[in-house]
Design a protein around this nucleic acid. Structure first.
Lengths: 204, 204, 204, 204
DNA sequence: TTCTAAACGAGACGGTACGTCGGGTCTTAGA
DNA sequence: TCTAAGACCCGACGTACCGTCTCGTTTAGAA
């Protein structure tokens, strides 16, 4: 019912694709996601609406590709390639990673679209699934691998579920980002790592 | 420009108010927030659209009142009344609270509208502010009070910022809820409390 | 399936109705029927598209009301009121009527929309039926009445079917109008009446 | 600006031409002219859209060729070859011709496309001109020739303009066909010839 | 018989208009 | 006077076709 014959990707116009993604980014920066419309994207990109509908299922998908898949200038990011640093010093590595995450979440260019996409995962089930699968899960798996290595190195309690451990680290960051309660800083990232590793209760 | 004369709340029809809130809850359960419309709420409630626009600024506000303010059957909840238990046993108290939070987040009736409202805070700045102020912040303050009491009782490291400590506790829960990665269970709540209190690194 | 509840005509905006009909006439005069669009009518009339779709089933119906029903400034024309003159002199009366018809068909303001509507009766069955019923048939019936009177007065062969007789009179006019072969003049109208009444063959 | 280099008719694919004309006829019979689209014709014919645009200026032109030029199985019809019978008996000859016209207008296969093409002459000036010139006028000229012969034979009033006389004969038929008021029969054709030749008024 | 230019199928493209939906405002009737 | 009902203007939706424009792939005439 969706479409008679799927479009042929080999005949796709790269020129149009870029124009659409650029227009989407510009418009979301100018007016915000709520006021972003397919019509406006098409008009700004100098493209027919059908060209957008042909290749993307929703405006969230357009913005997703523009924001997430397109970074690093190149093509789609390889999920398996996402890797956390492993210098042998777990605390230092985690601080490096969480500080980088903080920087990303503070990046003005990415902030608005990222928030919007995160919100959209709630309303649009299909998009939410794709988002989790393509972006979130690869990153979480990278955490899991790094934490398991730490367990093998005796730096992490072997009884701890890496999946839970990871959430102890990134959960606080995203909570603060989501709710805009307090600013996200490197110091905060460091504090989270310290507390997560050593616990809230007093040391003897 | 917003409105000629503000409506007189004393002449408001309680009957209509209830019908609107009930209709909103029914519809969001049936079709989801994305397909929820003011027109449908008005039709289902047997009410003119204007009656909704007169008393609420947005459909998010309607659903907010229906979902959050209306629990406990009665009226608005008193923010100052939100309080965490204090039996003197910090660990036990936190587990009690986080288990209750888990139960709430798993409540089928509340789940869909809660997710929607959380998403809406991203797109609708004004609503987001109101949401944080009326619901989130009172709860966070209750955590802060309880954690400070624990610090005074010597059960919590006095060098730890209670605000950060609290995020270490609730952040993981909301991360899992938001991203629907793994199920939210009492065991998970307990694990978070344990890890937060004692840390990820091995104990001697 | 067409519509949930039919609109309430008593609440209709006469202002919008007039603006729509006027805009339709202006636009059809400016650009022709083929390029006439509902969107353009709505824009010109300063009206939402829905207001047109609410009250008319097609652009042909709009133009029909604008062109045919609205003449004589007043309201809808009363089909029973259409009457041919009866001075007792059949030939003179028919020439009066056909000359008037020629003038109408030559009226620049009416010509373009009339041609378009006539064409539309072919493609749009429903509209064609309405057109025949509301405009054509009342006029043909007036002919039939006048011709029957002539038969009773002994001025017309009693063996002739009035319906066929009428077509002998108006058929040639519309043939010329339709096909734009030769100009429509009073002289032509007179010639048709003469030939129809007296026949093509030589008189003794 | 219309086209860089005109296409070479000698290299034209007869296979495609036939497939297009057949598809057009099939589709117009199935869905009516209003819903007939170039895309549908191309798809049904298994042909690229460009192949249609290359050889025909409009869908009316396609249908025109399919309907009118293609009859008698062969090629284009020779306008000069259109001739009315001349047995010496004017009345009989006219009845023969008008009866044949009635049969044609009643032919189910030709009816829908013919009506559509007639309607299109109103909206599409260029097509209208071509239609009149290639189809209508040759036939009318044939009438003129036959009627002039009748005048020379003393069977027709020499004062009558043959052009007007012809319209007295065919006008009524087309009026009835166009407006779908009453069925077109041989008896009707005969009646028209009788009345046209002898007039509506009583004979002594 | 091979070469080559055009016609061909396919269908993506920039557009225009469609008919529908819902937003938020305004008007009318009735309690 | 507030409410229900819903017409109104407006903007965006997602779809259908338009006519143009590449793409390879036949195919038929000239070399």
């Amino acid at each position: 019912m969706n479409r008679r014959t799927p479009p042929d990707p080999s005949r796709r116009s790269e020129r149009s694709r870029r124009a659409i993604l650029d227009a989407a980014l510009e418009l979301v920066a100018e007016t915000g996601y709520a006021k972003l419309t397919i019509e406006a994207i098409a008009a700004r990109a100098g493209v027919g609406k059908q060209t957008i509908y042909r290749w993307w299922p929703s405006k969230a998908a357009v913005l997703f590709e523009a924001t997430v898949l397109d970074r690093a200038g190149g093509e789609a990011l390889d999920p398996a390639a996402v890797e956390l640093p492993d210098t042998g010093d777990l605390e230092a590595d985690l601080k490096t990673v969480l500080r980088a995450t903080v920087d990303e979440l503070n990046d003005a260019r990415l902030n608005e679209p990222m928030r919007a996409l995160t919100a959209e995962t709630v309303n649009d089930e299909a998009f939410g699934t794709a988002f989790t699968e393509k972006v979130l899960e690869p990153q979480l798996q990278a955490y899991v691998r790094r934490l398991r290595a730490a367990q093998e190195a005796g730096q992490l309690d072997p009884g701890v579920d890496p999946r839970t451990a990871l959430e102890l680290l990134v959960g606080p960051l995203f909570h603060r980002w989501h709710n805009r309660t307090l600013p996200l800083t490197h110091a905060y990232a460091d504090a989270i790592v310290d507390l997560a590793l050593r616990g809230l209760t007093p040391r003897p």
